[in-house]
Deep mutational scan, measured.
Amino acid sequence: EETYEVDGEEQLKKVEKMLRDRNLDVEVEIHNGKFVIRAK
């Protein structure tokens, strides 16, 4: 499992696309105004 923490939606979209391109399962949560992306 990998976890990424990003600020802002633009970064979120980039990271999310990169992970989905690797066929990973992606979950996004918001913690303290930051996006936390978990990939399995």
Rank of each mutant, 00 (worst) to 15 (best):
E1H: 11
E1T: 11
E1R: 09
E1D: 11
E2L: 13
E2H: 11
E2T: 11
E2V: 12
E2R: 10
E2N: 06
E2Q: 08
E2F: 14
T3E: 10
T3D: 03
T3L: 13
T3I: 15
T3N: 06
T3H: 09
T3R: 11
T3G: 07
T3C: 15
Y4I: 06
Y4S: 01
Y4L: 04
Y4W: 13
Y4M: 04
Y4V: 04
Y4R: 02
E5Q: 07
E5R: 09
E5P: 03
E5A: 07
E5S: 08
E5L: 12
E5V: 14
V6Q: 02
V6R: 03
V6P: 02
V6H: 03
V6K: 03
D7V: 13
D7C: 15
D7Q: 10
G8Y: 07
G8H: 08
G8W: 11
G8A: 06
G8I: 06
E9L: 14
E9D: 07
E9K: 07
E9S: 05
E9I: 14
E9A: 08
E9Q: 08
E10H: 06
E10Y: 08
E10W: 09
E10Q: 07
E10N: 05
E10G: 04
Q11M: 13
Q11F: 10
Q11S: 09
Q11K: 07
Q11G: 08
L12R: 10
L12Y: 09
L12M: 13
L12G: 03
K13N: 06
K13E: 08
K13H: 11
K13V: 08
K13T: 06
K13F: 11
K14E: 11
K14T: 10
K14G: 04
K14D: 07
V15D: 01
V15R: 02
V15A: 04
V15W: 10
V15E: 01
V15I: 14
V15Q: 00
E16G: 04
E16V: 15
E16C: 15
E16Y: 15
E16R: 13
E16A: 14
E16M: 15
E16N: 06
E16L: 15
E16Q: 14
K17I: 07
K17G: 04
K17D: 04
K17L: 07
M18Q: 05
M18R: 04
M18S: 05
M18D: 00
M18L: 09
M18T: 04
M18I: 07
M18C: 15
L19F: 12
L19G: 01
L19N: 01
L19S: 01
L19V: 02
R20E: 03
R20W: 07
R20K: 09
R20L: 10
R20P: 01
R20C: 12
D21A: 13
D21K: 10
D21I: 09
D21T: 06
D21L: 12
D21E: 12
D21R: 11
D21N: 09
D21V: 07
R22I: 03
R22D: 02
R22S: 04
R22K: 07
R22A: 05
N23T: 03
N23D: 10
N23G: 15
N23K: 08
N23W: 11
N23H: 12
L24G: 02
L24T: 02
L24N: 02
L24W: 11
L24I: 08
D25M: 13
D25G: 08
D25N: 11
D25W: 14
D25R: 12
D25V: 14
D25Q: 13
V26Y: 15
V26G: 02
V26F: 15
V26K: 01
V26L: 10
V26A: 05
V26R: 01
V26H: 04
E27M: 12
E27Y: 13
E27R: 12
E27A: 09
E27K: 10
E27V: 14
E27S: 13
E27I: 14
V28T: 03
V28I: 13
V28K: 00
V28S: 02
V28H: 01
V28D: 00
V28Q: 00
E29W: 14
E29D: 06
E29T: 13
E29Q: 09
E29K: 08
E29A: 09
E29F: 15
E29R: 11
E29I: 13
I30R: 09
I30Y: 14
I30A: 08
I30N: 08
I30G: 05
I30W: 14
I30V: 11
H31D: 05
H31E: 07
H31Q: 10
H31I: 15
H31F: 12
H31N: 07
N32H: 06
N32S: 03
N32Q: 05
N32M: 06
N32T: 01
G33V: 01
G33K: 02
G33R: 01
G33S: 01
K34V: 09
K34I: 10
K34Y: 12
K34D: 02
K34E: 02
K34A: 05
F35W: 11
F35H: 02
F35V: 06
F35K: 00
F35R: 03
V36H: 06
V36P: 02
V36K: 07
V36I: 14
V36W: 08
I37K: 01
I37D: 01
I37S: 00
I37G: 01
I37Y: 02
R38Y: 06
R38I: 05
R38H: 06
R38G: 01
R38L: 04
R38F: 07
R38S: 04
A39D: 00
A39K: 03
A39Q: 03
A39F: 12
A39E: 00
A39L: 11
A39W: 13
K40M: 08
K40C: 14
K40S: 10
K40H: 10
K40N: 06
K40A: 05
K40I: 11
